[in-house]
């Protein structure tokens, strides 16, 4: 076991967000935290890094108590990748990754060749070495996230925490990011704990899924065991149908058929017409919440790569 959390409580005295939570994450393993908004997923990550003070907790990493650790020491062991992490203006990507070396440097030290080597390794590993001279604020979302992951790697951590690392990324970058994280876990023997909202994405990449609710872990284990329709309905309060991936057999979560009103085509045409005078609409109710794009344009054809030279994760 690398990370062992026992009886972790955190939050406000009147309203504990985490309530005696237990969780283990092993080396080389990607554990994904799933759960509805406000169940304490982000709080858990912040409590592990000590940004948020935790109460009555044992947070042990490689036999050492993280809660008792000074921030700088802790940052040499634990790195965090937040969702859409902002990068400072006018610093180059290289300089941003170099900031990952901060916990390894004392106040009066400057970065040396050892640090440059670590940065280069991290950037090459995450495929952003070519971006090194680009300004961080000019990078695309996907590029920026790779730089942020490289910065986390430059910390040379044992534990990688990811807080919705792909929530602002398109499908390709979502997949690439998790592919990368999983590879890192395997190659560098990292333990990774990621907060993810997309149940299917979690099921695709996670070694284990921890389903959180009300400040506790409700179930933890391989995706196929945890992602059960009854559990998900209890946790999310919505009916979910679990399908099996046709190739990997991993779970795919889709909402149970929801009754949707038939789209009102006439109304859609009118709001699309710039000349239409909407005020004339005689007391029309707003259109029921239907995802409009689904109606306006057909979903793009799914293109699956014919050949993949790397196997799908287990």
């Amino acid at each position: 076991m690398t990370l062992r959390i026992r009886g972790l409580s955190a939050g406000y005295p009147a309203r504990p967000v985490l309530d005696g939570l237990d969780l283990d994450v092993a080396r080389g393993e990607l554990v994904v935290l799933l759960g509805p908004n406000g169940c304490g997923k982000t709080t858990l990550l912040r409590a592990i890094t000590g940004v948020l003070p935790a109460r009555a907790a044992a947070i042990i990493l490689d036999g050492q108590d993280l809660a008792a650790m000074k921030p700088r020491r802790l940052a040499r062991r634990v790195a965090t990748v937040a969702q859409a992490s902002a990068l400072p203006e006018r610093f180059t990507a290289f300089e941003c990754v170099l900031m990952g070396r901060t916990p390894h440097l004392s106040l009066f030290q400057s970065e040396g060749s050892r640090d440059v080597a670590a940065v280069r390794a991290a950037m090459e590993r995450t495929g952003c070495w070519d971006l090194r001279d680009r300004l961080a604020d000019e990078l695309s979302g996907g590029e920026r996230q790779r730089v942020v992951i490289a910065r986390a790697l430059a910390q040379e951590p044992r534990l990688l925490l990811l807080d919705e690392p792909t929530s602002h990324l398109d499908l390709q970058h979502q997949v690439e990011t998790f592919r990368l994280v999983l590879d890192l876990c395997r190659d560098q023997d990292l333990a990774a704990l990621a907060v993810v909202h997309d149940v299917t994405l979690a099921a695709t990449f996670a070694d284990r899924v921890a389903l959180m609710s009300g400040g506790r872990i409700l179930a933890c284990g391989p995706p196929a065991q945890v992602l059960r329709e009854d559990l998900l309905r209890d946790v999310y309060g919505v009916a979910v149908r679990i399908l099996a991936h046709p190739v990997t057999g991993r779970p795919i979560a889709v909402p149970e058929t929801v009754h949707l009103a038939a789209p009102d085509i006439a109304w859609l045409e009118r709001i699309a017409d710039p000349d239409a005078v909407l005020e004339d609409s005689p007391g029309r109710e707003p259109h029921p919440a239907v995802p409009l794009p689904d109606v306006a344009q057909p979903p793009p054809a799914v293109r699956l790569p014919v050949q993949a030279n790397k196997g799908v994760p287990r």
Partner: peptide, 9 residues
């Protein structure tokens, strides 16, 4: 599910 070859590499 098949994945695109990692462009990053």
């Amino acid at each position: 599910m098949q994945l695109a070859p990692a462009r990053t590499v």
